[in-house]
Design a binder for these strands. Sequence first.
DNA 1: TATAATTCCTCTAGCCACTAGAGCTTCAAG
DNA 2: CTTGAAGCTCTAGTGGCTAGAGGAATTATA
Lengths: 136, 136
Amino acid sequence: MFSIGQLSKRTGVKIPTIRYYEQMGLIDEPERSEGNQRRYTKDGLSRLSFIRHSRDLGFSVEDIRGLLDLSQHPEKPCSDAHSIAAQHLQDVQSRIAKLRRLERELKRITKCDAGNVAACAVIETLADHGLCETEH
Amino acid sequence: MFSIGQLSKRTGVKIPTIRYYEQMGLIDEPERSEGNQRRYTKDGLSRLSFIRHSRDLGFSVEDIRGLLDLSQHPEKPCSDAHSIAAQHLQDVQSRIAKLRRLERELKRITKCDAGNVAACAVIETLADHGLCETEH
DNA sequence: TATAATTCCTCTAGCCACTAGAGCTTCAAG
DNA sequence: CTTGAAGCTCTAGTGGCTAGAGGAATTATA
């Protein structure tokens, strides 16, 4: 049996976040001590680790809900899990693409070495979209 | 003089967002019509365009506050604007780096073509961080 | 000019995934 | 038995909007 603090240390999930996940229904309400403190089992630990790892990989809480549900039903088709992950991969890739466009534009405008704001490319570019090289 | 709707169309900023910016102090409170509706000038238009463009480039509202302030003081050193933009560029780059790590991991795990969840690499990997190739 | 359609107003609440803090209770070590 | 750490619940705040209610003003059409 682990206290919430021990669970937190073992999984790297902060205590208020654990309680938040419980509220959101991602983890079951654990048993309580006589004094009403949460007491977790190994099952609770591995479920929370799963969640932690999924969050690290950027899955949303809703996605995780689905993935957890799948993990409880080993006979279901793998394609369900696959499509959640593939969709997420697409999201990540489109975010990367967008950020790379930003990066290019920011690199360009930060090259400016004017003396004061009056001639500064940063300010000028922001004031006038027409000065941009690419769309964003 | 523009109504808020006209301003919205010309800048591409949604109406509630314009009112939100006003509340946040990014744009001045405009004059009002007799019937209490907002009436904007060309100055209001260009200030909002500046904000829109800065948001498109991913600057935070706080950054924009600083950039707007600089743009009103053309005699200030360009380096102030430069450092806001350079810091933002760094943020963007580190976000890209992080997303690329995610992308690699997600690509790897979505390659799985098992039949059911019991053998699915997606679920397996989420349950056990040890199966990951890289840190994240 | 009357009416209908559209736009605008303020205010409150919701989104995501937490995080912080107040004020209190319980637990574990010495 | 005391003390200090750790736990409890509850509320509110973060960023950057977005949605909706309920009403007033403006504009377009008949």
